[in-house]
Amino acid sequence: MAVAVSLPFWLTTLALMRKEPGGPGSWILVGDPLVALGCFTVLLWRRRWPLAVALAVTMASTASALATGAALMALCSVGTRRRPVEIGAVVLAYVTASQIAVKVYPVQGSADAMVWVQVMVPALTAGIAVAVGVAIGARRVEMRSLRERAESAEREQSARAAQARALERNRIAREMHDVLAHRISLVAMQAGALDHRGDLSADENRVLVRGIAEGAHQALEELREVLGVLRADHGRPEPPQPSLDRIPDLVADARASNLDVRLSDAVTGTPPDGVGRTCYRIVQEALTNAAKHAPGAVVRITLDGAAGGTLDIGVHNGPALLRFARPPASGFGLLGLGERITLAGGELDHRPTPAGGYVLTARLPWPDSPAHSHEKST
């Protein structure tokens, strides 16, 4: 582009000098192109040292009409930086160089031209070059800003995706713990009883063995359901989650595994799905811990609550009556349970009792349903 801009200036100067008595000298035919070639070569470093290259090329253009395009390109490059002091210095050097160039290439009528014309024409061409450079610089800044915003949005999207994956992993881990820990604990308790109780009859032994087999089978089925949810497409609905109405089945399973569980249910009405599901998981985790750490103990479960108030859960077990190897504890059961209850806006408390047992209490908010509120208002 610099060569294309320079050629008209050089050809015009050459044509004007042919009309002079001495004709064009050897300088414009040989020296001028050589100087221009040096200027074009120096332009390769204009991005690294824009101001120095612009000043050097501008001053060299006084001795070369063919280097005019190089000077304008250097001026445009400085304009992209949008620094007024640098732009002013190069424009002043360009206008000054143009006045010196008139002395280097004296043509007929150039001395008689008005001074303001000799100044305004170079200033106008320099202004056009600067305007183009400033526009290019503004466009680069805008593109850089858009690119940074796009990269920032991509990073935020990646962070949100990573957070969503972490939350989903935590949810899956809680579900798998809740599903498997309870079943495996009951199976371990039955196996321990079978190993340490030598006074059991053949029928009692068969009942325990059958319970172990059924518990293992149920654990595998529930694990298969969880894995099926993981592998399912997003459009496939998840299987229904257990709620408050499934607690009697949970108690029945525990009793079938020789766990002495006594349930007292004074709940009035049906809580929302989230509250009922959290209540189910609380009772499930409490029974799991009782089976692990207090085999043979009596476990008392109390449920109480109504809409517009709270749902209170209490699980109390006495000290262990049977002694056998305990299954390994993960240490995350109560921690995950605390997270569930916190997310539900409730409170959790658990502690050992002086008699060697353990008590777990929880309170979940039970918001009043719109239908219930309407009934009370009428």
Rank of each mutant, 00 (worst) to 15 (best):
E175C: 02
E175P: 07
M176I: 13
M176L: 14
M176T: 09
M176D: 01
H177C: 00
H177D: 05
H177S: 13
D178H: 15
V179Y: 03
V179H: 12
L180W: 00
L180P: 00
A181Q: 09
H182D: 08
H182Q: 14
R183Y: 08
R183M: 02
R183F: 01
R183D: 06
R183L: 00
I184F: 12
S185I: 00
S185G: 09
S185R: 04
L186G: 01
V187D: 06
V187T: 14
V187S: 05
V187R: 02
A188V: 04
A188D: 09
M189Y: 00
M189R: 11
M189A: 02
Q190K: 05
A191Q: 04
L194S: 09
D195Q: 11
H196A: 05
R197H: 12
R197I: 11
R197N: 13
R197Y: 07
R197A: 05
R197E: 13
G198L: 15
G198W: 12
D199K: 00
D199N: 03
L200N: 02
S201D: 10
D203R: 09
D203W: 03
D203N: 02
D203F: 06
E204F: 00
R206M: 06
L208K: 03
L208V: 03
V209Y: 04
V209H: 07
R210C: 07
R210G: 06
R210A: 13
G211T: 04
I212C: 02
I212W: 01
I212G: 00
A216P: 07
H217Q: 12
Q218P: 07
Q218W: 04
Q218L: 10
L220Y: 14
L220W: 13
E221K: 12
E221L: 13
E222I: 01
L223D: 06
L223F: 15
L223A: 08
R224M: 14
R224L: 10
R224H: 07
R224E: 15
E225N: 10
L227R: 03
L227C: 05
L227Y: 07
L227F: 07
G228S: 08
G228F: 06
G228I: 10
G228R: 13
V229I: 08
L230R: 12
L230P: 02
R231W: 10
R231I: 04
R231A: 04
A232S: 15
A232M: 13
D233A: 10
D233W: 09
R236F: 04
R236I: 07
